[in-house]
Amino acid sequence: MDPIIQVKHLCKTFQVKGSQVDAAKDISFDIERGDIFGIIGLSGAGKSTLVRCLNLLEMPTSGEVIVDGKSLTELSDAELRFVRRDIGMIFQHFNLLMQKSVLDNVCFPLKIAGVKKQEARERAMELLRTVGLEDKAGAYPAQLSGGQKQRVAIARVLASNPKILLCDEATSALDPQTTKSILGLLRTINETYGITIVVITHEMAVVQEICHHVAVLDEGVLAESGTVQDLFRAPKTEAARRLILTGTEQLSRMRGGTAVRVTFSGQSSFEPMIANLILEYKMPVNILFADTKNINGSAEGEMILQLPDVKDTAERMIQDLRAKRLGVEVLEHYVG
């Protein structure tokens, strides 16, 4: 265990005209070195607030943020500026300098670090090659597409050789295709440079695509955290369940009966089990939804079944499925 980021009892309260908003309530978690760590939550859950506390763009009301052994709130301004060079950040709206060329944008962090101009330019060109934009060096951000702008932002953030990369909804303004390519680029960066990446998102698909670990935020509270696989197979909290089931709730909101969500590793064959259930109990089992997802490399199956409207039978079926070591959750809220 070698955590590069440790968050301890972090609280953040905003004062807004007399009333106060608790955007982070006693949040604690660790992020391992080299991990791709997701922070997921609905809009307003406090994700941006939390990630901005990780480089002190937002000052925590209380609690501690320890990055690479240093407690950020105890640093002087100068020390903090220095540590920030190790913590890159990319944003939903890219935040490039609009009046500067692509090359100058990538040179900017090097300029801050006092790197000589010629050297900075060479390094910037190299980084633009890495993100596939060397032909756009002389262009201005306004002339680029969203995906290209995010690539420039990524090249820029890599310029200072950060140890950590914070991404606040970095793909939320992009179409699915571009999202995939940006996430692919982030994974490459994680693998080639060993940079720890923190991914803030409201989309489970993004977490499933690249994250290894994930924390679920719900109204300023850390609802649960663990591996993406565990969250996918057995979400422990309502907040996590809501996020996982987006897109499937319409399917399961059907007639009577008990709906269950069954997860299984893609290799195991699931077909006979349903057939067996039907044969054994002589009752119908409906497949409302079935999908196989790629969760950082391994195939994970997901199925929503509608069990018979006979409570006793349904319960015994669930026990049977559980006996086969499948993840089974009853979706009470989604049947009506």
Partner: peptide, 9 residues
């Protein structure tokens, strides 16, 4: 904020 996050004074 992007500049601040890069450690700009």
């Amino acid at each position: 904020e992007a500049a601040q996050s890069m450690g700009a004074g």
